[in-house]
Amino acid sequence: MRARRHIGVLIRHDLRFTLSSARGLLFLVFFALIWGWVLWKLAGGFAEKLGTPEAGLALSYFFDSSIAKLFQDRPATLAAYFVIAATLTPLFGMLAACDQTASDLGTRHIRFLIPRVGRAEIFVARLVSATMLITLAQLLGGIAATIIAVKVHGGADVSTGAIIGYGARVTGLLIVYSLPIVAMMSLVSAGMGSIGLALLVGLGGYALIGVALGLMPLEGKVATVVSFLVPSGLKPYMLQSEIGPALGACAGALGYVALYSYLGWVVFSRRDT
């Protein structure tokens, strides 16, 4: 009971402090600027052209046939939003969640907290508040994209209900896809004890695996194992238009959350403060 109250107090203040801090505002401004531009383009009917058979060929060539199928099966605006958002989610997730316990440790602010609350409560509260921040951002982006999709596609071909339903699914999947990123950053921030270093290691690690997969001749099992070191391995399954693989990816995402959070807790609980 007391632990739940402590976590509630920490989350409430953490969100309030984050939204009034330079770092929190920087994330929100960056997020809003990028998505403002992308959504403005989508509102202009930019994605409609990607739903044509010619564009499908190009998408199959440059990306994946499942991406091309997504654009043909689903409202193209939402499909475009989904693909772009899924690509950017690791970046935004890391930006939103890079702090967590890092500045508590780096500035030793934690020394004001631990005579009053347990380490587990601090760890959980920071994880949950970072999750809430990125969830809020994904929710706002998803709602905006759905409204634009209704305006662009609503009417004769696709029912408004179907667009809203798919918009909700996309938003839900993006939120779930954000969770392992947040959990991964809980591990990195506890290990680094500095926001800048946590961001650098998080982004650097992701980029390194991206480069390894893109440039090095990894094939078969090695490529599969490397691609699943970070949650980005789930992205192709999430992006499929069928619900089955997406649900499997969600289950996988929760597995990452459990693993990263556990490792993050192990590091955080054993650190001297």
Binding site: F17, S21, A22, R108, P115
Partner: peptide, 29 residues
Amino acid sequence: HGRVAILPQDAQFIKGVPVLSQLAMLAEL
């Protein structure tokens, strides 16, 4: 918790947040 208070030498408060709010948070805890 709450029975032992500590003045650490080198701990910092959160930048950008009024000290009253920070102390209020600690009191809430």
